[in-house]
Computed example of a mutant assay.
Amino acid sequence: MPADTPPAGLDDFGGLLDWPRLNAWIQAQDIPGAGPVTGVKKLKGGLANSVFLLDRGGEAIVLRRPPKHLRPNSNETMLREARVLQALAGSPVPHPDFYAGCDDPEVIGAAFYLMQPLEGFAPMGELKGDYATDSGWRAAMGPEMVRAAAALAAVDPAAVGLADLGKPDDWHARQVARWRSQLEGYATTPGYNPKDLPHFDEVGQWLSDHLPTERRIGLIHGDFQFANVMFSLAAPRISGVIDWELTTLGDPMLDLGWILTSWWEDGDPPGKKPLVSPWRDFGSRADLIRLYGELTGRDMSATPWFFALGCYKLACLLEGTVAASKAGKVPAEVGESVHGYATWLTTKARQIIAG
């Protein structure tokens, strides 16, 4: 087959996969399977990156790469993810095994990496399998997420070569200014007004005035929620945490705060529905907090600070999509829906700080 001829029947997904170059690169790696890739399927995932399931000699491999239109830091972020997965090898943190990474954009037009496929599903909307019908399986989901977050919190960044992954100095005190500046940065988009996000200044002031006494620095996943956790369909357990692009150094208890933002229970502000259904037998936030404290030995009296910070930070990130909708890059109805969730988050944060 000539070098410039793609393998028969393999979609290149609009130029995202250069098959002659990619197959040549894959065959030079020590990874599962043998020979060239003979099958490919694009997997559902986030908007930020593209994920593909490859078949190589009967072995399944997942390829993750940035979108076709690269952002200034797309390649750097992809290699950062690959580095984190490499560093977690052998740890008790559930994650896909890392196979190989490529920092040469000449191969497929961007940096990419290959990893182990995970059995199961990332729960969003209707639950699948026994999770949909068995109360015990649903009851296990929250504790499983907390155990995974606690396992990550126990990893020593220096011991796994990640001591330079972020800026740990004065991390807690810097959070409000860091995320406020991001929100204010969206104001350069015509039609977007940061003041449309309610309670934001009030929550930020409270966070600045109530810094936790116990402060630890470790690895933070950065987006620890249902959409980024694969649950096995064979047993009520996590098969792996995915999407490590926001991983950095900071206080790992923020991952618990993130889990709490995705939870739902009576007494929450109106305007948000459970992220998965049926939402029964999931236990309370108090149950999750208690378990995290038992597993980590942390002083859980600081939980409201991390919970409020999770709401504050996530609202800021979501408002980026709102700004994009004002610029016509995202459908207006998506922007409206996302702004509704961001508003719920800052309203929930205000409820948290009120005690």
Score class of each variant (00 low, 15 high):
Met1Thr: 14
Met1Gly: 15
Ala3Gly: 08
Asp4Tyr: 11
Asp12Cys: 06
Gly14Ala: 09
Gly15Lys: 12
Asn23Pro: 04
Ala24Thr: 15
Ala24Phe: 05
Gln27Met: 15
Gly33Tyr: 08
Gly35His: 11
Gly35Trp: 10
Pro36Ser: 11
Pro36Asp: 11
Val37Phe: 09
Gly39Val: 06
Val40Thr: 12
Val40Pro: 00
Lys42Ile: 03
Arg56Glu: 04
Glu59Ser: 15
Ala60Trp: 07
Val62Ser: 06
Arg65Met: 05
Pro67Gln: 12
Pro67Cys: 09
Pro67His: 11
Ser74Phe: 06
Asn75Phe: 06
Glu81Gln: 14
Glu81His: 04
Arg83Trp: 02
Leu88Met: 07
Ser91Val: 05
Ser91Gly: 07
Pro96Phe: 04
Cys102Phe: 02
Asp103Gly: 14
Asp104Ala: 11
Pro105Asp: 13
Gly109Asn: 10
Glu119Lys: 08
Met124Asn: 12
Gly129His: 05
Gly129Thr: 03
Ala139Lys: 04
Ala150Asp: 08
Val155Lys: 06
Asp156Lys: 13
Ala158Glu: 15
Leu162Ala: 08
Leu162Trp: 09
Asp164Lys: 13
Leu165Arg: 12
Arg174Asp: 12
Arg174Pro: 04
Arg174Leu: 12
Arg180Met: 07
Ser181Phe: 03
Ser181Glu: 14
Asn193Met: 03
Phe200Ser: 01
Asp201Gln: 10
Thr213Pro: 01
Gly218Arg: 01
Val229Phe: 00
Ala235Pro: 00
Ala235His: 07
Ile242Pro: 01
Thr248Met: 07
Gly257Ile: 02
Leu260Thr: 06
Ser262Asp: 13
Trp264Gln: 09
Lys273Ser: 14
Val276Glu: 02
Asp287Val: 00
Leu295Cys: 12
Met300Val: 14
Pro304Tyr: 05
Cys311Val: 12
Tyr312Ala: 10
Thr321Met: 09
Val322Lys: 05
Ala324Asn: 13
Lys326Gln: 14
Ala327Asn: 10
Pro331Ala: 07
Gly335Leu: 08
Gly335Met: 07
Gly340Ala: 02
Gly340Tyr: 05
Tyr341Ala: 11
Tyr341Gln: 14
Ala342Gln: 02
Ala342Ser: 11
Trp344Arg: 07
Leu345Ser: 09
Leu345Cys: 15
Ile353Leu: 12
